[in-house]
Amino acid sequence: MAARNLWDEIPATVPGTAAQRQLGAARYAFRAQTSSVAWWGSFMLLLVTAFCVMMVFVISGESEWTNAILFIILGGGSFLGAIAVPLAARFRPVAWCAVFDRGVVYQYGSQPPIAGAWDEITGCQRHATDLVRNGVKMSTTHSVYVQMPAGNFMVSGDTPGAQEIGSLIANGWAAVQNRIAEEDATARLAELAELLQTGARVEFGPFTVSLAGLEHGGTVLDWKRISEVELMGSTICVVVTGERKPVREPVSSMPDPVLFLTVADAVLRAARQAR
């Protein structure tokens, strides 16, 4: 049996919208699958409630006709519910999401698609929620919430596909944000270089950059002693020759970490060439 290809099932409006917006080649498609388990759970809860109400009437000594009517209503409701619940879960509007080289498209049911390039996304948040029962993790629901001028949407599910689509969207948006920040830092580097040449000092949160050295905590580190200024996870590390531990500061303490790393790298390379 051939592997299932979601691109063969996806509505034509999704790739069509991507082509109109010039979002590039398709990379991944995801369809939000509606599980009937939750629908069955709600139905069974309603059924148990109705059964409890019927038992109250039976215990209270109501007439046989009343009990018979309740049995008929409960039995008929159970039969119709057993048919309606899976049908409702099956024919519920389907949510589609597709990732392209330069953006993402989302469509719910027959509503118009929501599309945007990576640089049009104004916010992206990912969440992973574990379903735990009796101390045992049953499943993990992966969700990604996207904000853009065309509209907001959320894709979630407990399948590997939901995790993959969330990673692709978050990584695509983060890559563009980093590129924009790097381009901005490069553009501002020339201005800061002229400022540093005059002997000025530029502050970046806990660090102060000057041609004389990198100041941190009241101590000025000579650029000739610094071997590396790098980003490790969510921490900026300054590796100093002869020191056992690097100087560490969280990225959150920096007003513009990308610009700081760009300036520090440029000054460090200039100091090495001057040796």
Rank of each mutant, 00 (worst) to 15 (best):
W39L: 06
M148E: 05
T140H: 04
A38S: 14
P86C: 04
K245Y: 11
V240Q: 04
M148G: 12
Q107P: 08
S139Y: 00
E64P: 12
E120Y: 05
W223T: 02
P93S: 01
Q20A: 12
A82D: 00
V99A: 11
L45G: 15
G24T: 02
W40L: 14
W40R: 07
S36R: 09
D222M: 10
G116Y: 03
G166Y: 00
G135E: 11
V53D: 12
N171P: 05
T122G: 11
G157V: 03
M232R: 15
L192N: 01
A170L: 08
D222Q: 12
G218K: 06
L47P: 02
R133G: 09
I226G: 03
S227H: 05
V56Q: 15
G76S: 11
E191F: 11
G109L: 02
G109E: 01
L23H: 01
V209N: 05
A12L: 13
I121A: 00
A187T: 08
Q273D: 14
R179P: 09
W39E: 08
G76K: 02
D158W: 11
E164H: 05
R248N: 12
Q177R: 14
N152R: 09
I236P: 03
I10F: 05
F204L: 04
L261N: 01
V258G: 03
R188M: 08
R201W: 01
E249L: 13
V48Y: 10
A88N: 07
P257E: 11
E182N: 06
E9Q: 01
I10T: 02
